[in-house]
Simulated scan of single mutants.
Amino acid sequence: MLKLHVTDETSVLKAVILGIADSCGPTPTVEEAYDPKSLEHIIAGTYPKEADMVKEMDAFDKVLKKYGVTVYRPKLIEDCNQIFSRDIAMVIDNVLVKSNILPDREQELEAIQYVIDQIAPEKILTPPEEVHIEGGDVMVWGDHVFIGTYKGEDYPNYITARTNMQGVEFIRKHFPHKKVKEFDLVKSNTDAKRNALHLDCCFQPVGKNLGIIHKEGFRSEDDYKYLVDLFGEENLFHITADEMYHMFSNVFSIAPDVVVTERNFTRLNEWLRSKGFTVEEIPYAEIAKQEGLLRCSTMPLIRA
Rank of each mutant, 00 (worst) to 15 (best):
240 T>K: 11
82 Q>L: 05
274 S>K: 14
133 I>D: 01
181 K>F: 02
72 Y>S: 12
301 L>E: 00
267 R>H: 07
218 F>N: 07
23 S>C: 10
286 E>N: 15
175 F>I: 04
1 M>E: 08
94 N>P: 13
190 T>R: 05
11 S>E: 00
233 E>W: 13
299 M>L: 03
274 S>M: 11
27 T>E: 15
279 V>C: 11
224 Y>L: 11
279 V>L: 08
62 K>I: 05
69 V>L: 08
241 A>Y: 13
247 M>L: 15
109 L>T: 03
117 D>C: 01
102 L>H: 10
103 P>F: 08
203 F>A: 08
273 R>G: 13
100 N>H: 14
244 M>D: 03
304 A>N: 07
301 L>F: 00
166 Q>C: 12
257 D>V: 07
44 A>K: 12
17 I>S: 00
5 H>Q: 01
48 P>W: 10
123 K>N: 14
212 I>L: 07
38 S>E: 05
303 R>A: 00
173 K>M: 02
75 K>R: 15
8 D>V: 00
122 E>W: 09
172 R>K: 15
171 I>D: 05
178 K>Y: 02
227 L>T: 02
175 F>D: 08
124 I>H: 09
133 I>L: 06
268 L>A: 09
87 D>C: 12
191 D>Y: 07
167 G>E: 05
188 S>E: 09
85 S>I: 02
217 G>M: 04
168 V>K: 01
154 D>V: 02
208 K>H: 09
208 K>S: 04
220 S>T: 12
93 D>Q: 14
72 Y>I: 05
72 Y>L: 08
268 L>E: 13
261 T>H: 06
277 F>Y: 13
28 P>A: 13
136 G>D: 02
45 G>A: 08
192 A>I: 04
151 K>D: 10
83 I>P: 02
69 V>W: 07
22 D>R: 07
55 K>W: 01
93 D>I: 13
6 V>A: 01
196 A>Y: 08
157 N>M: 07
89 A>H: 06
107 Q>H: 08
12 V>T: 11
